[in-house]
Nucleic acid binder design. Structure first.
Length: 466
RNA sequence: GGCGGCAUGGCCAAGCGGUCUAAGGCGAAGGUCUGCAAAACCUUUAUUCGUCAGUUCGAAUCUGACUGCCGCCUCCA
């Protein structure tokens, strides 16, 4: 299993610190708004990575943090004239709802900054003790120069940063790139006690503190969006490793952006759709297939047309599942079908083992469907065992790892509707027998208008409610 | 200015030195089925991989230059 590691800029063989167990920490959202479909991409891809690691037998300990105290939350609270707590609570709730709708599996833990103040303060205190941080009037800054490895993740050098910097120079700091660990409370701001007075944690501290608290000083995988490489993840490394002297995370993974017309989708640019909005019109499976068809590390252009493309592709998979389920219900016995299921499992693993190559993996699913269709068409007697193996393959790969299909959900229809449609089909069949095509077509057209699609075949007419 | 990424068919997108006259999806065209349809299924759809050099027996894949995009350096998945 190979993973591209941002730290070494290479694909590396993945070997967890402790055999059989993988600790994985993913940077989650700041809960000041609904998350957008670009955020959703990271969350979904992280979910697929987690699921695949479980698929190959690892016990994955998975955390995604929620930043629930931050400038943005405070600003939002001021705008809406409510308590910042309320803001965080509301969007935390929304976050849980949305990731559930996206089919994202529950994390083992969603650590929150406000629930880890002791650890955060403790971490900052250690940094101050060790000389990696300094307190100026209740603001504590990290002394960037004190950490030799600063820049090792992002490839940036402190002296080179200066040239293009547009950071407002804070004269209090020793170095303009020193970053805030603890922010002194302003009036009417939520605050916590600390050795430096009332305040709240700065941007990056929570992730270090929480990751170490829950998973120990060194974790296996730390992941997040591309834009977190610098400064967020760089700073996490500086904070954590300065304190522990140990490697903070062994594999750093970063997700490419979702772009709107060549431009990064982001809240600050205002060019975004919330995941919620998209979920109103598209299923989680469609969205997940859409994401899976591009490698997680590259950019992905978002448009509704592209999403529709994935929707069409998914219909193909669902039709196939329909067919398999129908056939499976009516067939019996074993068949002699020679079909190499193992090779498809292997191809799927090969793809995923190569730095989670989901586009390749989805291609394997489509190849599998084509080959299985062919086998069915070319075989006289297809037995039940074949169909159940097909379903097993899809269950293990497309459903459990990629989450692009829900085998249970396909073909769930209400019985009353079914009975009524069947009644109409009987009438139509009589009309057809009498060659009264005007009437039979009228029935068909009206049903089509209602979203009920008819399919005539030798065995009779079947239908599908769209 | 510094650092990083990308450029493959009408569109999206794999590919990591030979099996590439390049996977898969969408779209399109033809076929099977049908009273006609629709749906489904089957088949076809890049001798070519931004441009120009180079390395190599061999390059979409490595190197260099060039062109064009994008991101980070500032809160951001």
């Amino acid at each position: 299993m190979q993973i591209y590691n941002t730290l070494t800029k290479k694909k590396e063989e993945f070997v967890p610190l402790n055999p059989g167990v993988v600790t994985m920490y993913v940077c989650g959202p700041t809960v000041y708004d609904f998350f957008h479909i670009g955020n959703a991409r990271s969350f979904v891809m992280a979910d697929i990575i987690r699921r695949y690691l479980e698929y190959i037998g690892y016990n994955v300990r998975y955390a995604m943090n929620l930043t629930d105290i931050d400038d943005k939350i405070i600003n939002k609270a001021n705008e809406e004239k409510i308590d910042s707590n309320e803001v965080a609570k509301k969007f935390t709730q929304a976050f849980y709802e949305d990731i559930k709708k996206l089919g994202i599996r529950e994390a083992n833990i969603h650590p929150k900054a406000t629930e880890h103040m002791d650890e955060i303060v403790g971490l900052i205190d250690s940094l101050v003790q060790k000389g990696n941080a300094y307190n100026i009037n209740g603001n504590v800054f990290y002394r960037v120069e004190s950490f030799a490895g600063y820049g090792k993740l992002s490839g940036k050098k402190i002296d080179e940063l200066e040239s293009g910097s547009r950071v407002e120079v804070n004269t209090e700091k020793e170095n303009p790139f020193d970053f805030s660990l603890w922010k002194k409370a302003k009036e009417n701001e939520p605050s916590w006690d600390s050795p430096w007075g009332k305040g709240r944690p700065g941007w990056h501290t929570e992730c270090s503190a929480m990751s170490m608290k829950h998973f120990g000083e060194t974790i296996d995988i730390h992941a997040g969006g591309n834009d977190l490489i610098f400064p967020h993840h760089e700073n996490e490394i500086a904070q954590s490793e300065a304190v522990t002297g140990k490697q903070f995370a062994r594999y750093w993974m970063h997700f490419g952006f979702l772009n709107m017309k060549e431009e990064k989708m982001s809240k600050s640019l205002g060019n975004f759709f919330t995941a919620r909005e998209i979920l109103e019109n598209y299923s989680a499976e469609t969205i997940r297939l859409f994401f899976s068809q591009t490698h997680y590390s590259g950019p992905l252009a978002f448009s509704e047309d592209l999403l529709k493309t994935s929707q069409s592709a998914l219909i193909k998979v669902e039709n196939f599942v329909d067919l398999i389920k129908e056939n499976s219900a009516t067939s019996g016995g074993d068949s002699e079908t020679t079909f190499d299921f193992e090779s498809y499992f292997r191809l799927f693993s090969d793809a995923m083992d190569n730095d989670f190559n989901t586009p390749q993996a989805t291609a394997v699913i489509f190849d599998f469907i084509k080959a299985a269709n062919k086998a069915i068409n070319e075989t006289e007697q297809v037995g039940k065992n074949f169909y159940s193996k097909v379903l097993e393959f899809l269950n293990k790969t497309a459903q459990n790892v990629l989450g692009i299909i829900d085998l249970e959900k396909v073909k769930m229809q209400k019985s009353l509707e079914n009975d009524l449609v069947k009644l109409l089909l009987d009438v139509r069949q009589k009309a057809r027998a009498e060659k009264n095509f005007a009437l039979s077509d009228e029935i068909r057209d009206k049903l089509t208008e209602l979203g009920i699609e008819l399919k005539d075949s030798k065995e009779g007419t079947t239908f599908k409610i769209k």
